Simulated scan of single mutants.
Amino acid sequence: MKSLQEKVLELYEDHQKTQIPLSEVEIRLALEANGLPATPQLIEFEQRYRGMKLYADIVAIEFGLIWDGGAPFDPTVAAVEYEAFDPEDGRDHQYLITCAHSEFYIQFGLDEHGRYYENGQLKFNTFWELLEWYVRGGR
């Protein structure tokens, strides 16, 4: 029987990537061009999970932070959707960045620390924890 780690790695390795991979420099430039900090957590998420698809029933959820950008890719015109918060409002994060597109009824987000949110509510401290939940059959 496969361990949880093996199942998550298999899911990660087998997923259909539908977006062209971006370099660390391209990711950094695109985030900064959109007024976002290029934190290690955001760069890692985009490098590892850009274009990954998971399914909620039959509805695809495609992950990524950076959308469009033309061909060839131009980080200065790439779109990153996010909500910014006043640093003085008591939150431990300043940004909530859309991290997936879908026809599913949930808003998917990632903060600058790499924590995963659904409809503005913290669900997992890392995206990897979401994948572990998913392979356990979570829905």
Score class of each variant (00 low, 15 high):
residue 94 Q to M: 07
residue 73 F to M: 06
residue 104 F to T: 05
residue 67 W to R: 13
residue 83 E to P: 01
residue 92 D to C: 01
residue 60 A to K: 09
residue 91 R to W: 02
residue 56 A to R: 10
residue 58 I to V: 07
residue 86 D to S: 06
residue 92 D to K: 03
residue 104 F to R: 10
residue 108 F to T: 14
residue 70 G to A: 06
residue 59 V to N: 09
residue 99 C to K: 04
residue 86 D to L: 11
residue 89 D to G: 03
residue 98 T to R: 11
residue 82 Y to S: 14
residue 107 Q to V: 14
residue 101 H to C: 00
residue 89 D to I: 14
residue 104 F to P: 08
residue 58 I to F: 07
residue 69 G to P: 15
residue 92 D to A: 10
residue 74 D to V: 01
residue 66 I to C: 13
residue 65 L to M: 05
residue 59 V to I: 07
residue 104 F to K: 02
residue 84 A to H: 08
residue 71 A to F: 13
residue 78 A to L: 07
residue 85 F to R: 13
residue 62 E to A: 01
residue 106 I to D: 14
residue 96 L to F: 04
residue 61 I to G: 11
residue 96 L to M: 06
residue 83 E to V: 07
residue 95 Y to F: 13
residue 66 I to K: 15
residue 55 Y to V: 11
residue 64 G to Q: 03
residue 57 D to T: 15
residue 93 H to P: 02
residue 58 I to G: 06
residue 70 G to T: 12
residue 64 G to V: 07
residue 65 L to W: 04
residue 58 I to Y: 08
residue 88 E to A: 12
residue 106 I to M: 13
residue 95 Y to G: 00
residue 105 Y to Q: 07
residue 105 Y to K: 12
residue 87 P to C: 02
residue 104 F to D: 15
residue 62 E to P: 02
residue 85 F to A: 04
residue 81 E to F: 05
residue 100 A to E: 12
residue 64 G to E: 03
residue 59 V to Y: 08
residue 65 L to A: 08
residue 68 D to S: 13
residue 60 A to T: 10
residue 89 D to N: 09
residue 102 S to I: 10
residue 55 Y to R: 08
residue 95 Y to W: 15
residue 93 H to E: 01
residue 71 A to H: 12
residue 57 D to F: 05
residue 70 G to N: 09
residue 101 H to T: 11
residue 99 C to V: 11
residue 106 I to Y: 15
residue 65 L to T: 00
residue 77 V to M: 13
residue 63 F to P: 10
residue 70 G to H: 04
residue 100 A to R: 04
residue 68 D to F: 11
residue 60 A to F: 00
residue 85 F to V: 04
residue 68 D to Y: 13
residue 62 E to D: 14
residue 99 C to H: 06
residue 57 D to K: 12
residue 105 Y to M: 13
residue 93 H to Y: 15
residue 64 G to A: 06
residue 94 Q to R: 15
residue 101 H to W: 06
residue 89 D to H: 02
residue 55 Y to A: 02
residue 87 P to K: 15
residue 87 P to G: 12
residue 68 D to A: 12
residue 76 T to A: 10
residue 75 P to K: 14
residue 58 I to T: 10
residue 84 A to N: 02
residue 65 L to G: 00
residue 72 P to L: 08
residue 82 Y to W: 05
residue 93 H to K: 11
residue 95 Y to I: 00
residue 76 T to G: 00
residue 76 T to I: 00
residue 96 L to G: 06
residue 85 F to K: 11
residue 91 R to N: 13
residue 71 A to R: 12
residue 59 V to E: 12
residue 107 Q to S: 06
residue 85 F to D: 01
residue 60 A to M: 05
residue 69 G to M: 07
residue 85 F to I: 05
residue 59 V to P: 00
residue 107 Q to C: 07
residue 91 R to D: 09
residue 80 V to H: 01
residue 86 D to H: 10
residue 62 E to V: 07
residue 103 E to Q: 11
residue 69 G to S: 09
